[in-house]
Computed example of a mutant assay.
Amino acid sequence: MPSALSALSPQRRRLVLVVVGLVGVLVLALAATLVVRALTRGRPVPQDRPGPVLLVPGYGGRTASLDPLAAVLRAEGRDVTIVSLLGDGTGDLDAQAGHLADVADDVLRTSGAPSVDVVGYSAGGVVVRLWVRDHGGDVQARRVLTLGSPQHGTSVAALGAEVAGGCPTACEQLLPDSSLLRRLNAGDETPSGPEWATVRSASDQVVTPTGSAALDGALNVLVQDACPSATTSHYQLPADAVVAATVRSTLGAGPVAAPEPGC
């Protein structure tokens, strides 16, 4: 290499050195990511040590929708990251799960925490499940909470696809009998690793039927069980008082528990 470099002009020599340096940085970053995953694999996540919280937005990736939840968690002293989805948030949900894995790696590496808690809103809850199942989240997540997530699909996506003659990839994947959901729901709906909880509202007209948002093996909270008069819509879930109470009762240091009744 020295003799080859000496034959180059000063400008080309600097360019080669810059390129080599960049490659070295990328290799080190990849190695650090692999080390994080290797060190955490197979190690039980401490359930009494709440770490940073990742909030995953729904279809379309509107991060501002999760600001109310972020405020609740930060008031509790938690470190919160609202995850920006790839592209416009309507692309392949499995690719979004891979991106979530990268974000989780970065947060764990920079914080030094043993785990993360993750809240997935709407389609973001499906992304979180894909991450846990296929992208290493099973050894990084302590608690998973999903809000109004079409875990078994939604008839609204089916209607939209029928009327429009098709819809973006994520929409197609949220059809009730999509190949992605059939694979995701085959066997154990709540794989071992994190503790699981879901919240849904009987007034949700986006995820229909609303029972699609519940998961076998999870603590499943219906907003109206805690507040019978609630008319919380799908879009109001992140700012709902029952949801805020569920965040506190499921993401704390104690066992996962349903919120106390109240509106």
Rank of each mutant, 00 (worst) to 15 (best):
Q205W: 10
L130P: 02
P150Q: 01
S149K: 10
Q173E: 11
L184D: 01
R129S: 12
L147Q: 07
R183L: 03
Q205N: 09
G124R: 04
V132H: 15
L181F: 09
S179N: 06
A186C: 04
T154Q: 01
D134V: 00
V128A: 13
T146H: 06
E162G: 06
G125W: 07
E162H: 03
L174P: 01
R182P: 02
A141Q: 03
A157N: 10
A158Y: 00
L147M: 04
Q151G: 04
E189A: 14
V119T: 09
S201I: 04
S149Y: 05
G136C: 05
G125H: 00
L145N: 01
L147P: 10
S201L: 09
V126W: 14
E172Q: 13
G187P: 03
L180G: 00
D188K: 10
G187E: 01
A141T: 14
P150A: 08
C167A: 15
L180P: 00
Y121L: 10
L174I: 06
L130W: 11
S155I: 08
V119M: 14
P176T: 02
A158Q: 14
P194T: 08
A123N: 07
T190I: 02
C171W: 00
T154D: 10
Q205Y: 15
Q151A: 11
L145G: 01
P176W: 02
L147G: 10
P168M: 05
L147W: 09
Q205V: 10
T154A: 03
A164L: 15
Q205A: 13
S122R: 12
Q140P: 01
G137R: 07
G153C: 02
A158T: 03
W131S: 03
T154C: 09
W131Q: 14
G124A: 05
L159M: 12
V127T: 15
G125A: 06
G137C: 09
S203N: 15
A123L: 04
A197I: 11
L175W: 09
E172V: 11
G125D: 11
D188L: 03
G187I: 15
P176F: 02
A186Q: 13
V144L: 06
V139L: 07
T154K: 10
V132E: 15
G165C: 09
A197T: 13
Y121V: 05
Q140L: 13
R200L: 15
S149M: 06
E189Q: 15
V126H: 05
W196N: 11
W196H: 05
A123F: 06
T154Y: 13
D138C: 12
S155C: 03
